[in-house]
Design a protein around this nucleic acid. Structure first.
Length: 560
RNA sequence: GGACCUGUAGCUCAGAUUGGACAGAGCAGCUUCCUCCUAAGACGAUUAUAGGCAAAGAAGGUCGUGGGUUCAAAUCCCACCAGGUCCGCCA
């Protein structure tokens, strides 16, 4: 907003420049917005400070009521704003809950989470799940019609192995406890046995042929039953996390569609039949490795179904855009997938994007569910909830047990989501229990706490009038400066697929608010007008902080 | 061998897309206060109680290494080093 004003002024004196050039100076004494004159200096072969001086003389500040003065300093033109007026504008915008609608009801599908229905979700799945969910929240907020999709790889060899394990050791048994955990033990056992006896995999491959090619009824029945159990387990975890999907895709339903695309690729000579009788996409001339689209026995692979699914997604939902939140391990897969679809001449490829993120590792190295070496998501939530409950007990001993648990859950889930979302997606995370369980510093609970403080003050104040204009102290001004940035941060975060921008921003709000209330008494302000203004400021802070946390999928408790 | 990502304080990270005025946080550690400070929580006249993560302060960095471009480089380019990921029948 400030930058727009500066651009206007610069235009009026004949300087054509864009918002990106302007800077926010690092110190108060340099003003609020700075225009660097180094570029002009080069063009005109002059000293930058000289140019800045000339500009200041040409700018008639009296034209703009928001600006107090301009100053040439160190080759910059520094603009000083009239913060009381700026603040008035910003606060009223926030209170009117004006939203930026850049989505225009465009349809965007975000596919995320995609757990393998053979074992419980581990902490790595949590990352993709939270990132995808936050991104969906962000696009929702921006006025897109967002379809949240989950995808179950229910047909690969890994499921065949679990089915084989079930038939070997648990035939006709029903799950005890949470089904995904119950099934996991058989999955691990299968891989243990497999390492001793490689022939065991023959059973799995046979089951896969029966399921996919022969469509053997008995196999399909037992197969689907196991997948269903696993998905039941996932849904319980999603409920705990407050995550919902609009649609679940099952891989086996898209394999046929995929195979017909493979046929088309073969006919159009995009793919060829290898000497071993597999069907291979010829991508080498496009700088990508070739990739197998169909096994020599005629069964499909992961990419086979993904081809079919992508085609169906656009056909059925008439999407304007489709995003896959999937780990960086599959960077190549998506390049190949998109390239093949492009070669098949599907125009929707330009609206496909892979939102890639790095892994979550354990301190001792990679996680492996098949070896039983993984930190499971449910386990983390349970520990966090337990710890949060202890804290809540300490602080609110008089609340009912149910209320305490409700608060503890919000804190636990908030802590987990924030700790994962705040890390830049391209950085890998090393899971650390000690850090995960921390509620201090730059953590979710700290932000939730700042929000409940806002609530506490407002509640205690009862009624007050909205006052937008007041002489500002330093801390009030700094808080307003932060609140002003919400739109820019949001757009940046959406454009770059970076929910962590919002995390950083929410932390800035909490810090600025913290400084504000420590230095500016609200309820004990000097006079009624100041008190009402400060209450208005608390109210706007609450709105912006709550919005930011909601975008991250973090709920705000009424008390803590 | 090829491709991509990462390397910033003791630890965990932000800043890099858009080069800009002293490279920012959190945690740990250190110093001081604890006869002080805070309580916008509970009780309720004074009292009492609790916390110190709701105290104050300082310190800590060859931005992996070496070159280059530029008035200006953590940021852009090149090379190298280290870690991670991927590269024909896993997903």
């Amino acid at each position: 907003m400030l930058k727009d004003e500066v651009i206007k002024i610069l235009h009026s004196v004949g300087i054509r420049t864009s918002k990106e050039v302007l800077e926010v100076p690092p110190q108060e004494i340099f003003g609020d917005i700075a225009f660097p004159c180094f570029g002009l200096a080069k063009q005109e072969h002059k000293n930058p400070q000289e140019i800045a001086g000339e500009l200041v003389n040409r700018i008639r500040i009296s034209k703009n009521p928001l600006i107090i003065k301009t100053e040439a300093r160190g080759g910059y033109v520094n603009f000083f704003f009239y913060w009381e007026k700026v603040g008035e504008k910003i606060l009223s915008q926030i209170l009117s809950r004006r939203k930026i609608n850049i989505g225009n009801r465009k349809k965007i599908m975000i596919e995320y989470s995609q757990p393998n229905p053979v074992h419980p979700m581990h902490i790595g799945h949590a990352r993709g799940t939270f990132l995808g969910d936050a991104l969906a929240n962000i696009y929702d907020y921006l006025g897109y019609r967002t379809i949240r999709a989950n995808y179950m790889n229910d047909i690969g060899l890994q499921v065949a192995r679990l089915v084989a394990a079930y038939k070997l050791w648990a035939e006709n048994k029903k799950p005890k406890g949470k089904p995904d955990f119950w099934l996991w033990q058989y999955y691990v056992k299968f891989h243990e046995e497999l390492s001793k006896n490689a022939k065991l995999d023959e059973k799995a491959r046979e089951l896969l042929r029966k399921f996919e090619l022969e469509r053997n009824k008995a196999t399909i029945k037992i197969w689907n039953k196991i997948v269903k159990w696993c998905v039941q387990g996932f849904n319980e975890s999603y409920r705990n996390l407050g995550i919902k999907f609009h649609v679940y895709f099952y891989e086996n339903e898209f394999r046929e569609a995929g195979k017909s695309l493979v046929d088309k690729a073969l006919n159009n000579e995009i793919a060829f039949r290898s000497p071993e009788n597999a069907i291979v996409a010829n991508l080498e001339k496009y700088g990508l490795p070739n990739c197998i689209l169909l096994r020599s026995d005629g069964t499909g692979l992961y990419i086979t179904s993904d081809l079919g699914l992508t085609f169906k997604k656009f056909q059925k939902y008439q999407l304007d855009k489709s995003v896959w939140a999937v780990s960086s391990q599959q960077n190549l897969h998506f390049k190949q997938l998109f390239k093949i679809l492009e070669l098949l001449d599907y125009k929707f490829v330009k609206d496909c994007e892979h939102f890639s993120f790095e892994h979550v590792n354990l301190p001792e190295g990679k996680m492996s569910s098949r070896e039983g070496k993984a930190v499971m998501l449910d386990e983390v939530i349970t520990s966090l909830t337990k710890q949060a409950l202890e804290e809540v007990e300490k602080r609110n001993p008089r609340l009912s047990k149910q209320k305490k648990l409700g608060i503890a859950k919000k804190i636990a889930v908030g802590a987990l989501k924030y700790s994962i979302l705040k890390i830049e997606p391209e950085n890998s995370i090393t899971f650390d229990w000690k850090q995960m369980l921390s509620f201090e510093g730059n953590t979710g609970p700290y932000l939730q706490y700042a929000h409940t403080r806002c609530l506490g003050i407002l509640k205690k104040a009862k009624k007050h009038q909205i006052v937008l204009f007041s002489k500002l102290s330093l801390h009030e001004k700094q808080l307003i400066k932060v609140l002003m940035n919400f739109d820019d941060v949001l757009l940046d975060s959406a454009k770059n697929y970076r929910p962590n921008f919002i995390c950083n921003y929410a932390y800035e709000i909490a810090t600025a608010f913290s400084n504000f209330y420590q230095n500016c008494p609200v309820l004990k302000a000097n006079d009624k007008k100041q008190r009402d203004f400060r209450l208005t400021l608390v109210m706007t802070t609450k709105i912006v902080l709550e919005n930011s946390l909601k975008l991250l999928g973090i709920k705000v408790p009424e008390r803590m």
